[in-house]
Design a binder for these strands. Structure first.
Lengths: 113, 113
DNA sequence: TTATAATATTAGAGAAATAGAATATAATAG
DNA sequence: CTATTATATTCTATTTCTCTAATATTATAA
């Protein structure tokens, strides 16, 4: 239950274009910050801020190489999410069967919209 | 690419405890608003607001049954997400191999933290 | 040492999300 | 009709997020 809350926190973090871009880069392999700057056109300090947030949430981690920080993806849930985000899906799920029963009522069959 | 932006918008919506609760209920079957109120302890108007947001994003849809609105899950991406959120994962991904090469440097092997 | 390169931190303004309160709508029952 | 039930909408204060700008830190190179 509380575990789901942790997952929600991570979802929130991942649900951001720049952070998705960072994470997709990292999913290909270790990258230092300068490497990331070549791929993502946002400011250095903003990249650092995103990296910091992702690290505090346990999504990524880094090695130190001199003055470089070499970041990598750590969280398997997030790796799975990244796959899901790029996956193809049918336009919509099959609608529910004709006359579904809810607690309050039994839908008679007419569809709004 | 732009498709990814749409997915990110949906991720943002899903990344909320009440909306996850609503979606998990709907993933089990059609539910009208009163049914949902029994499961989720937030105000009626707030539930309506969440349902409205989810519907505008194409995540859910509804049938009309008299004065009831019977909501159901429509978006297959979201159904997949719900599964992922409840899935078990190893604590962490295997770290990258010892001396990964980044554009700027080759990590010598020492790990921070 | 001093300069520079790589990265992080802090502060703050502006934007967006959230929830509560009050009110509106719409359908049915009486 | 009128009351009631089911649900939606609007307004709004508050909180949270996001980015920019400026500055700090740290390691290496010169």
């Amino acid at each position: 239950m509380n575990d789901v809350m942790a997952r929600i926190e991570i979802l929130k973090l991942v649900a951001h274009p720049a952070r998705i871009a960072i994470l997709e880069e990292l999913s290909k392999g270790v990258k230092c910050v300068t490497d990331l700057q070549d791929f993502i056109e946002i400011s250095q300090s903003n990249i650092s801020q995103h990296l910091s947030a992702l690290r505090h949430a346990g999504v990524i981690d880094y090695f130190v190489d001199g003055r470089l920080r070499c970041y990598f993806l750590k969280n398997p849930f997030v790796l799975d999410l990244l796959g899901t985000i790029r996956k193809d899906y049918p336009a919509a799920l099959e609608g529910p069967e004709c006359c579904p029963v809810t607690k309050k009522g039994k839908y008679p069959g007419k569809r709004k919209n």
